Computed example of a mutant assay.
Amino acid sequence: MNKTEMKTAILDAKQTKGLTWDAIAKAVGLSKEFTCSACLGMNSLNQTQAEACAESLGLGPDVAAALQAFPHKTWDQTVPTDPLIYRFYEIVGVYGETIKALIHEEFGDGIMSAIDYSMDIQRQPDPKGDRVVVTLNGKFLPYKSW
């Protein structure tokens, strides 16, 4: 089973069982954000985590094996057309240089890791309409001279 077939099987089982990403993540023992990413094929799980994930969804060892396979982090579109995902591209397009300038001013010349990284997505109630709070937390990696 490849990652695309795995993703389809997981999404079908999730819908059939009426599970949330949070419930699946609790069974796996990881955050909902990382668990969702692995289930969508963009990260991998270790054997124990993969088996717990597959079991929580009522899926077999073929899904558990696919969850353990290292992903090819690729996507079909250069700029996505899904409005929610596109907004993140828009944010980086409008604020990317600002983010870079502020990180460099605070930390120096380097990057934020997407490997030593975590993400948290929360709902913040607001009388004018609930807010989406996305926290991206990556280790600073300075560029080296040699």
Rank of each mutant, 00 (worst) to 15 (best):
T16C: 03
K26G: 06
N137F: 03
Y117V: 02
S56A: 15
Q77T: 09
C39R: 00
M6E: 07
D22Y: 08
D22G: 02
G18D: 02
G129A: 11
W75C: 08
T48H: 07
G96I: 01
K17M: 11
K3Q: 13
D120P: 00
R87N: 05
Q68W: 03
M112N: 01
K73L: 10
E5R: 11
T35W: 02
A27H: 04
A65H: 07
F70R: 13
T135D: 10
H72R: 12
T81L: 08
L30P: 00
Y89F: 15
T78V: 13
G93P: 05
D116E: 10
E106D: 14
P83V: 09
M119T: 03
D76M: 12
V79P: 00
A65R: 13
M6Q: 14
Y89K: 04
R131I: 14
S113V: 08
L141Q: 13
A54H: 01
S44W: 04
E90Y: 08
L84T: 10
D126N: 15
Q15N: 12
M1G: 04
F140C: 11
Y86R: 15
A69V: 10
E51D: 04
L45Q: 04
D82W: 06
K32Q: 13
V79N: 04
I121G: 00
F140S: 06
I103M: 14
G58I: 08
A25F: 05
L11I: 01
K139R: 15
I85M: 09
L57M: 07
S37Q: 12
M112W: 00
K73V: 14
N137H: 13
D120R: 10
E106V: 04
L57C: 09
L57S: 03
E55Y: 04
G18H: 03
E90R: 08
I85E: 14
T8A: 14
T48E: 14
K7A: 13
I99N: 03
W146T: 12
L30N: 09
I85G: 01
T20A: 07
E55T: 12
M42E: 10
W75R: 15
W146D: 14
T4F: 03
V133P: 00
W75H: 10
N2Q: 08
Q68F: 02
Y89N: 09
W75G: 09
A27Y: 00
I111A: 11
G60C: 03
A65C: 01
L45I: 07
A13Y: 09
G110Q: 09
D82F: 05
V63Y: 02
L40T: 11
T98N: 09
D120Y: 00
E97D: 15
G41V: 04
S56E: 09
L67W: 06
T74A: 10
N46M: 07
K26P: 00
T4M: 06
A52F: 01
G93N: 14
K100G: 02
N43F: 05
V92D: 05
D120G: 04
G129S: 11
I121N: 03
K73S: 06
T74F: 09
K3I: 04
I10N: 04
T98Y: 11
A54C: 07
D116H: 13
V132H: 07
A65K: 15
T8M: 11
